[in-house]
Design a protein around this nucleic acid. Structure first.
Lengths: 353, 353
DNA sequence: TTGTAGGCGTTATCAA
DNA sequence: TTGATAACGCCTACAA
């Protein structure tokens, strides 16, 4: 039987009003009383009931995030960084993070968002992996519910979001591969419904064009952003009559699988076949060879998103609403190149901080 | 202004009582009324206010997990699998997962647990990374608050937990290394306050003894379970006058850093220096070379923990309380050995499902 | 400076 | 089968 504010009041022969105000630091309570109340509350181990507080205050001091979990084994380090960032920043502001998982576009997902939004389970939500057609955006707008997203939600409108420059950075990656002497570049993407897939693929095409390389649809495959799929898709492509000499992958996880496939095909990752990822997960700096990737500061992005969401929930603040992140191209051994001497042992293998 | 049960009642000229019962599926309401209520609720987009429901029901339908976040950049894939497991199983039971992060043993951690437990923010908590002296255990027991843990909480007492056989499996790893011809085995551990560190280290020592190898404290280092620390510690040890020819690491993340260090020292991971991890994160199957590790089914463990916790919260169930998991030794290229021909190209590199 | 009282939105008890 | 009513625990306008 938990201790309530009544118990504290009774013990001190005070009204619950006074106890409440003393604990919340109002100044219309005598210093002496405040001390007594604080002490008693501490001794009795009183902590306010969260549900009651939320009901009364009409806010939950929690924000929500629903993981798009499709895989039975869902192990992209991207998410642990992302969640750690969300959690750290939320904790810093004394706000809880409520998470759940649901397959994208499932009934379950719909039900979840509805209970959270209309049931006021959370004060706002974080969106991620935006789809080209995304019911969540429409729903949240229509419900007038606060949200922020990684990726621009819609072409038009004043939203709060962080955008990653997918297109230009992947195009720059093509350029990098060309400079390293790779000539025939494949692309292993993610689900076609995803905005990042569309953008990164567009960057790939733009890059090819700029580099004067022909676009060959046989060199393009759609995975699911996991290592096993990256492995499978790469094997197929490597067995083509005219196999590629480099791969750009939609994310690092995919790239790990691709490296494995290249290796298994008896080719050297780097000198013979270049492999590049996207995300900059920490493990990418420690694979053999270390993976060239487009590093986006996932942890910081997550923290920033929470900060922006909380700012939006706070009527007094006047926050920035948009933000563009330009991923940093980390050149490592996995694309050390077919020309030049970038492949000397140890070059570019320094761990990235 | 969200829709309340009152709005639904008013529109149908019914009492809120009837609406409530109709929606909750009680049988003392006429079928016709139930239909009308359901329909109206659906049309109006009514979802019960969670705070009110929790206050009244005296339970939150949520479980809590506090990440032990020490690093500024907290990127162990172990956690994304763990959280995905927690989230998936929780979602399946229509229960929310509330997470936050706090440094182990900090004031913040204490405050968090107290608000959650005494403020009834969640109905139960999941514990992990148990410490040798762990205030959380004492606190939860004293508060009579439901919890389950990965790792046995205390030597004595009837708790609900899943235990991983750390000691024997690490000892078996030593044996494996010996069979592969490695002679001088180092150990890169985690923080000494952690139970898993104590157990895995004990397994290392037991394994050495059984193998007839001398224990050399110079070959032991304490990291923090991250790649960068693994890298740093391994470099130091590799520069000893008598360097080791194999490393056992407290987890896979550490092992990735160690492999990198070995490589940078100009040695071949596998034929020259064996490296073994612990966890079986998916990426471990795709590193170059693939990492030998003790695979524990993190995702399934997490799901199981949630199942056990929910069973415990449900008075009708009679669940199992304890569980021992024996990690599976996955022999891969990173310990292909100094003897025999296990190092042929491709051997043991098949991706693990 | 302190206390009284009403209500946040639900669910559950009891009576009709 | 339905409805009035009282909590759940907290916060806050208003009164004293």
């Amino acid at each position: 039987m938990p201790i309530t504010i009544r118990d504290v009041a009774k013990r001190l022969n005070l009204s619950i009003t006074t106890v409440s105000r003393a604990l919340d630091g109002y100044d219309d309570v005598s210093e002496e009383t405040r001390q007594r109340v604080r002490q008693a509350a501490q001794e009795m181990g009183y902590f306010p009931n969260q549900a009651a507080r939320h009901l009364r205050r009409q806010r939950s001091d929690a924000i929500g995030y629903i993981l798009p979990a499709t895989q039975p084994r869902f192990a992209d380090p991207f998410f642990s960084e992302f969640i750690a960032g969300l959690g750290d920043e939320a904790a810093q502001h004394q706000v809880d993070l409520v998470i759940s998982t649901a397959p994208p576009d499932s009934d379950q997902e719909k039900w979840l968002y509805q209970t959270w939004v209309q049931g006021q389970k959370v004060d706002g939500v974080i969106l991620h992996r935006i789809r080209l057609v995304d019911w969540r955006i429409d729903y949240l707008i229509q419900a007038g519910f606060p949200f922020v997203s990684l990726e621009k939600p819609l072409p038009e409108g004043d939203f709060t979001y962080i955008e990653v420059d997918n297109r230009n950075s992947v195009a720059a990656m093509v350029q990098h591969l060309r400079e390293r002497g790779y000539q025939r570049i494949a692309y292993i993407g993610g689900p076609e419904t995803l905005k990042i897939q569309a953008e990164r693929f567009a960057g790939y095409q733009a890059g090819l064009e700029k580099a004067g390389f022909a676009y060959d649809p046989k060199l393009v495959a759609a995975g699911d952003m996991t290592s096993p799929e990256g492995y499978r898709q790469a094997l197929q492509i490597l067995h083509l009559p005219q196999p590629p000499d480099a791969f750009i992958c939609v994310n690092d996880e995919t790239a790990f699988g691709v490296m494995h496939a290249v290796d298994e095909a008896g080719l050297a990752v780097g000198p013979e076949v270049g492999v590049a990822g996207f995300d900059g997960v920490q493990t990418a700096g420690y694979s053999q060879p270390p993976l060239t990737t487009l590093d986006q500061p996932v942890y910081d992005i997550a923290r920033h998103l929470v900060g922006m969401l909380l700012a939006e929930l706070n009527p007094e603040s006047q926050p920035e609403h948009q933000f563009v992140i330009v991923p940093k191209l980390l050149e490592r051994q996995s694309t050390c190149g077919r020309v030049g001497d970038h492949c000397r042992h140890g070059a570019g293998t320094e761990p990235q901080p």
